[in-house]
């Protein structure tokens, strides 16, 4: 059985939950396919998928054992472009964070390339597959309208204090909180271009719910040092890597 992450804390359990592809994540909101396309901003809704090469069937490819063994993605079959979605996760108890995202993506999404940075995380794959994955990422526990940002550029904000209304700082103000309804909506696509119609992302999660769902160790939540099992495994890995097989005896 795959071992996803050590530890006995709730945070460790949540990390395992994200990484384990056999666990179905809770669906928290409904976002239509068209809205996902709008937020991504790579093509207009309803527009044909632009392609970079003819469909694989029409290509005369050389015989190759690997080609026989590996079933191509739908997007690869059709010759779609490779496109991306990028998220920024606030350090204030966002449900996911870059490293958990990357590990989860590799377990959950086939044929996708994940890129991890300290404050943001990008996933790249063929356009029609990306839209499928993006929908899953936006609708499930991976996403919280207030503490997670869909940011293709100008990502700054994950380590800053939150705004007064509890939203993560966003210089381009893509996701806005409406005080009267208590809902968050996306008014710009991920690179900050104005949308024709705002896309409703739903209500931000309560602080207590976020603390239950988070995958971030924090002193004012669950401290990493208190998770003895996780620390033990980390220390073991550290020693093994430092020794690198060297045996002083």
């Amino acid at each position: 059985m795959a071992q996803f992450y050590p530890g006995t804390s709730k945070v460790a359990e949540n990390r395992r939950k994200f990484m384990n592809p056999d666990i179905e994540l809770e669906k928290l909101r409904e976002i239509s396919d068209e809205d996902v396309v709008q937020i991504l901003g790579h093509r207009a809704p309803g527009e044909e998928y632009p392609s970079v090469h003819p469909p694989l069937e029409e290509l005369d490819e050389p015989d190759d054992a690997i080609r026989d063994m590996v079933e191509p993605l739908d997007g690869a079959k059709a010759g779609d472009r490779v496109r991306y979605i990028q998220f920024t996760d606030s350090m204030y108890f966002a449900p996911a964070h870059p490293f958990v995202r990357s590990r989860s993506y590799l377990h959950r999404f086939r044929g996708a390339d994940a890129g991890t940075l300290s404050g943001r995380q990008i996933i790249e794959t063929r356009e029609r597959d990306l839209e499928k994955y993006a929908k899953e990422l936006l609708e499930t526990e991976f996403f919280d309208p207030a503490r997670t940002g869909i940011r293709g550029k100008t990502v700054h904000g994950h380590a800053l204090r939150l705004d007064e209304d509890g939203m993560m700082f966003d210089m381009l103000r893509r996701q806005l909180f409406d005080k009267s309804t208590g809902m968050v909506s996306s008014v710009k696509n991920q690179i900050g271009d104005e949308l024709d119609e705002p896309v409703l992302l739903g209500e931000p999660l309560e602080e207590s719910v976020l603390k239950e769902k988070t995958t971030i160790y924090r002193k004012d939540g669950e401290a990493y040092r208190d998770d003895k099992d996780a620390v033990e495994v980390l220390q073991r890995i550290h020693v093994l890597r430092s020794m690198g097989g060297y045996n002083p005896e």
């Binding site: 800053l160 204090r161 939150l162 705004d163 007064e164 700082f169």
Partner: peptide
Amino acid sequence: FPHRLLSADTT
């Protein structure tokens, strides 16, 4: 040092 970033109105 406020615990949240202040809007223009509050400032």
